[in-house]
Design a protein around this nucleic acid. Structure first.
Lengths: 216, 216
DNA sequence: ACCTGTGAATCGATTCACAGCC
DNA sequence: GGCTGTGAATCGATTCACAGGT
């Protein structure tokens, strides 16, 4: 059998990146008691064009009714299933510094389908302490801890100087999806998916757009 | 006059988003004492292909020497200038919760060209306290504070429930570039640039890619 | 009359492959 | 011989505009 195995994997990467916004918009509508919506309304709430939204949803199959619109609850379920967050997923955070703390205390994970199940660090001072009710484990035991907690997605909140090293450890432990907050490019083998969030880079991109103004 | 005013704005958005990685790679090389490099090496360090890197740099003009490669220090200066971070830029953070704290204490801004010059919150309990040596101001005084600190880029680290409200305030105060950490889509007028970082969305995108494995 | 789903057209970004220069 | 800079080709994503269904 070939190398493109999964079912609905004709979903383009660019569409996948927008599905979470649709999910947020749908959750908002549901919370406000709205039962039906349209591509125009959903697109508005998500910050995209209506044609783009319809195209994206059409990759998941037919989800609306022509002439009518979309059912909020039904569509919500479809998008959650497509993203693979229909059931709760357990994540681990490595790095218990300021950012690791902020993430561990963040209350917004549950509504998005995630539970922080495990914290780890390299610093012996931090190992064994409790953060937000979770004990900090030793990253040296990553393999056992990750396996016993059933974690498949790891968040790296370490300084840049340790990120590659920790990345190698968790990849060796079988992790295939990593969210990296360290300001560096991680080298990973094929089949491991890394997404990086770098505040410095984001600010630099914004700085580019502000050129021409405010130049003293 | 038309609506596409600026000089080097032929730079495609997709290229702009990669320039920060190149800058990080160049800073690494410089820190290691490396004086010259090639598109192959820089691309490797940045996680892109060599052709893409050359194409991106070519938008900034000719920066290397054929048959030789690129001068690290020179190219570093060119990319910083292109991004508009050749001189230090002042930023403000709104929201002094866990994330606001973590950002205020983050030591990595300076090397990327930014200084946190101002913190603000709505909570009267927090206003007047000091975080990382900076006093927390009242967001109600945003206009005056932003102006007196010479801030043009604002980071929103508020809960989602207040993000749009605070966004409206800072936009009214003249801010045109916003980095939003709240899990919501901000509605802004034309000409205001928003970049959003949403941990929940990032995890959902990773969850998508982990489908097919780990399904019990 | 209205709104979705989708072919067809467009637009932009990536990659190839080589001419030009060191 | 080696590496950049770039036309030309390719690839993918977005938008248009309308056919199909309610």
């Amino acid at each position: 059998m070939p190398d493109t195995p999964e079912r609905a994997r004709q979903l383009p990467a660019a569409s996948v990146e927008r599905l979470p916004s649709y999910l947020r918009a749908l959750a908002d509508l549901a919370a406000r008691g709205v039962e039906g919506t349209s591509s125009a309304e959903l697109a508005e709430l998500s910050g995209v064009g209506p044609a783009q939204l319809r195209r994206d949803l059409s990759y998941l199959g037919s989800n609306g009714r022509r002439g009518v619109g979309y059912d909020v609850a039904y569509l919500y379920g479809r998008v959650r299933a497509a993203l693979g967050v229909a059931e709760e997923r357990r994540i681990a955070i490595v790095g218990a510094g300021h950012l690791g703390h902020a993430l561990a205390n963040y209350s917004g994970f549950a509504s998005r389908g995630f539970v922080v199940s495990l914290l780890m660090d390299i610093d012996p001072q931090l190992i064994g302490t409790q953060i937000s009710g979770i004990e900090v484990g030793d990253v040296a035991c990553a393999r056992e801890l990750l396996a016993s907690h059933g974690v498949s997605i790891v968040v790296l909140a370490t300084p840049g100087s340790h990120a590659q090293e920790v990345c190698d450890v968790v990849v060796a432990a079988g992790v295939r999806e990593i969210l990296n907050f360290a300001p560096c490019t991680l080298q990973v083998p094929d089949g491991v998916k890394v997404r990086s969030v770098d505040v410095g880079s984001e600010l630099q991109i914004l700085a580019f757009h502000s050129q021409g103004r405010a130049e003293e």
